[in-house]
Amino acid sequence: MQFLQFFLCITVLLLYCNVSRSAFLCELNQANPFKVALTSTVDIAGKGNFTTIQSAVDSIPSGNTKWIRIQIFAGVYREKVTITYDKTCIFLDGAGSRETFIEWDGHERTNTSATFTSYAENLVVKGIGFKNTYNLGPKQNDLVPALAAEILGDKAAFYNCSFFGVQDTLWDVGGRHYFYQCYIQGGADFIFGKGQSFYEQSVLYYSLETYGQGTYIGYITAQGRDSADDPSGFVFKDCVILGKGKAYLGRAWKAFSRVIIANSKLSDIVVPVGWDAWQFVGHEDQLTYAEEDNSGPGADTSKRVPWQKKLSEGVKGNGHVKFKCPTFLKFKVKAMAVTLSDDEVSDNESDKTGLGFVKSIFVPETHSPNFVPSSKPPVSEIVKQAEVTPPRKIRVDL
Score class of each variant (00 low, 15 high):
Ser197Asn: 08
Ser360Gly: 00
Glu108Ile: 10
Gly174Leu: 08
Cys89Tyr: 05
Val81His: 05
Ser264Gly: 04
Gly274Trp: 00
Gln54Met: 07
Asn18Asp: 12
Glu284Leu: 04
Gly233His: 03
Ala56Glu: 11
Phe34Met: 08
Asn160Cys: 13
Val124Cys: 12
Lys254Asp: 00
Phe236Arg: 01
Val273Trp: 00
Ala37Val: 08
Ala299Pro: 05
Ala247Met: 06
Tyr134Leu: 04
His367Leu: 09
Tyr219Lys: 02
Arg225Leu: 12
Leu266Arg: 02
Glu344Gln: 14
Pro326Ile: 07
Pro326Arg: 11
Thr339Tyr: 03
Asp276Ser: 12
Glu365His: 13
Lys322Val: 13
Ala247Thr: 04
Val281Leu: 12
Gln385Met: 08
Val396Asp: 09
Leu25Val: 07
Leu152Phe: 04
Arg109His: 09
Val321His: 04
Tyr219Phe: 07
Ile220His: 06
Tyr77Leu: 12
Phe362Arg: 14
Ser312Cys: 08
Lys330Ala: 05
Gly63Asn: 14
Asp229Arg: 05
Phe371Ala: 02
Lys265Gln: 09
Leu25Arg: 04
Pro377Met: 09
Lys265His: 09
Gly153Trp: 02
Lys310Tyr: 07
Ile53His: 06
Ser341Glu: 10
Ile361Gly: 06
Ile261Trp: 00
Ala37Ser: 14
Ser97Ile: 02
Ala252Lys: 02
Met1Lys: 15
Glu344Lys: 13
Lys131Gln: 10
Thr84Asn: 14
Pro390Asn: 07
Tyr216Thr: 05
Val379Thr: 03
Ala228Gln: 13
Pro145Asp: 09
Ser62Asn: 15
Leu28Pro: 07
Phe234Glu: 00
Ser207Arg: 01
Asp105Asn: 14
Glu150Val: 01
Thr169Gln: 03
Ala386Pro: 00
Phe371Tyr: 15
Gln385Ile: 08
Val76Ile: 15
Tyr134Asn: 05
Lys246Ala: 03
Met1Ala: 15
Asn18Arg: 14
Cys182Glu: 01
Gly175Glu: 03
Lys254Cys: 00
